[in-house]
Design a protein around this nucleic acid. Structure first.
Lengths: 104, 104
DNA sequence: CTAAGGTGCAACCCTGTGGTTGCAGTAACC
DNA sequence: GGTTACTGCAACCACAGGGTTGCACCTTAG
């Protein structure tokens, strides 16, 4: 099982700002500068967070001329869900169903 | 939405040692000293981790005379899964199914 | 009662990392 | 071509937190 993969995802999702960035990018793709415009932190801070999410495989970057758009690639979330379903499935019936619903 | 709840869970699961402790406690409940026996860290370090997991709602402690047993309570994992399904559901069909399968 | 083993608390390092500022590079618009 | 605007890199600061040790407390075992 891709356990370290799940670890990277959990690490990325552990930060509130990164979760906010993810949901915001879920609304629609954007550049680091655009995102920083509506947030209380600098563009470079945003860039660092986006890089973390990128390394976790949760984003993909797409160069468009002079600016870089980021969009969500949620596949790694499945690994994280699998991990949780594995640990908790024996106790919680709802989580047990998740394992089944994650089939091929 | 229990968004901060999910945050606590992600924060707890972000640490590899804590994930290992969780899986180990999933195998069967144990005390901090027992857990520390099979790990390369001190009992107090284990206790700190267990406390984190406890505050995230992922464990419950049960005093038995002079020692304290910890057991897994995986309900909060559902919140984390909900959060992920919400963010990623629009792109990934498997995650979309998770939202549905989490119903009451 | 005394000794032993388990827990809890506190103080203390030290690394990781979220945040900042500053500057260089580079693509686009006039 | 020159200016403007976005990205990328590097140095730096400050705090959180994972880890340690040491000691006090308390419950069980002999």
């Amino acid at each position: 099982m891709s356990d370290d993969r799940a670890g990277a995802v959990f690490g990325a999702l552990a930060d509130p700002m990164r979760r906010q960035l993810l949901t915001q990018l879920a609304a629609h793709p954007a550049t680091a500068t655009e995102l920083a415009g509506g947030l209380p932190i600098s563009r470079q801070a945003v860039a660092k967070h986006l890089n973390s999410l990128l390394e976790a495989g949760l984003l993909e970057r797409e160069r468009a001329g002079r600016d870089v758009r980021y969009r969500v690639t949620p596949e790694p979330l499945s690994d994280a869900v699998s991990w949780m379903a594995e640990v908790g499935g024996q106790w919680d019936e709802r989580l047990a169903r998740l394992s089944r619903s994650l089939g091929p």
